[in-house]
């Protein structure tokens, strides 16, 4: 066969597509670098380039340098949280085969938030490590509950039933959270600003304890790329191709839950990043999860950094929390997806 000498048609197509995707990868990395520079340079206070350079190196001699020094961990947190949410969204859309799957829509973030608020209100929780584990527990319970409810009845966990169960759970958890906070004036203010979702208060001390969890979540999600490619063909076809369907789904979902829980614990629930980012990435590089997952993480980081910068600029001299900005950006995209997609996917 001639295929033994020259690369076959499939190999050629793979090479061609790999080159196009590598080009996009370079662009996305450049955009990430650009967004990070903007995030350090722009804010409610104008600073000069000398102050930026000094501040990035940790200098705090002038107010301008100190401002920059605060913006650095803030930028890192926005990048980490955005990457985590973008990746978690892509994984959830793959696991549930549901184009509307998103940590917000499936009730995962609301579950994590409810667990944290319960911890603060009833158990006097103050330490960030406690927030972290409580949030992951809440996210996991919400995910398990939504999946269990979505699986009940004929046909198993169809995308439609999952979305409905998730929406109901999200509303129930949010209402319950409000009910807990309302009579508690002592904690209401702090909890409410955390609930909107922000990266403004970022410090290295807050970021460090999350890193191991985030790292584990990233690894679990990224190694599930191949299984997600098979699951996209339907459970039966995936099983026929040698995927361990239940196992693959559970481990990918666990990774996504860890990412959502850790992010929610530090930043509060941030919506729409997990929904919007994977769809934009699919337009760029297609449906292969081996590319889609890393791209969603990078694009999520870019989006959240830019949303944070925008929030600092539009509301000068005050700031707008990043959760509000992503909601403004995300809502139109949400509507676009619903209108574009045929009902077949639901």
């Amino acid at each position: 066969m001639t295929a033994a000498i020259a690369p076959g048609p499939t190999a050629q197509a793979i090479l061609r597509r790999r080159r196009a995707r590598a080009g996009w990868l370079v662009l996305v990395l450049l955009a990430l670098a650009g967004a990070a520079v903007l995030s350090v340079a722009l804010g409610t206070r104008d600073v000069g380039w000398s102050a930026i350079l000094a501040g990035v190196r940790g200098g705090t001699d002038t107010i301008a340098e100190a401002v920059v020094a605060v913006r650095v961990p803030r930028t890192v947190l926005a990048a980490l949280a955005g990457a985590a949410l973008g990746l978690a969204g892509a994984v959830m859309q793959g696991v549930t085969r549901n184009p509307l799957a998103d940590p917000g829509i499936l009730g995962i973030n609301a579950g994590a938030a409810m667990a944290v608020v319960i911890g603060i209100a009833w158990f006097g929780m103050v330490r960030l490590e406690a927030f972290l584990w409580t949030a992951i527990l809440g996210a996991g319970l919400a995910a398990g509950f939504v999946y269990a409810v979505g699986t009940m009845g004929r046909g198993g966990a169809t995308p439609l039933k999952l979305a409905l169960a998730g929406a109901a759970t999200a509303i129930a958890a949010s209402s319950f959270t409000v009910a807990i906070i309302l009579p508690r004036n002592d904690i209401a203010g702090g909890v409410r600003s955390w609930q909107v979702g922000g990266v403004g208060g970022a410090t290295w001390e807050a970021i460090l304890p999350c890193l191991p969890l985030l790292a584990a979540g990233f690894v679990l999600c990224l190694i599930s790329a191949r299984s997600l490619n098979l699951l996209a063909l339907g459970d039966e076809a995936a099983a026929g191709l040698g995927a361990r369907v239940a196992w693959a789904r559970a481990s990918a979902a666990l990774g996504a839950v860890m990412l959502c829980g850790a992010t929610t614990a530090i930043c509060g629930p941030i919506g729409f990043v997990g929904l919007v980012v994977p769809h934009l990435c699919r337009l760029l590089i297609g449906v292969d999860h081996r590319w889609l997952l890393p791209f969603s993480a990078l694009a999520g980081a870019i989006l959240l950094i830019l949303a944070d910068v925008l929030g600092r600029i539009v509301a000068r001299p005050s700031e707008m929390d990043v959760g509000i900005v992503t909601a403004f950006l995300g809502a139109p995209v949400f509507i676009w997806i619903v209108r574009k997609r045929r009902v077949r996917d639901l």
Binding site: L230, A237, A239, G240, L241, V287, D288
Partner: peptide, 22 residues
């Protein structure tokens, strides 16, 4: 053992070559 289920799902925008290479 190969299997072709009754109604497998083709992801949006997947090419024939991509599908077959699965």
């Amino acid at each position: 053992l190969g299997l072709l289920p009754q109604s497998p799902i083709a992801p949006d925008g997947i090419t024939v070559a991509d599908l077959v290479s699965h």
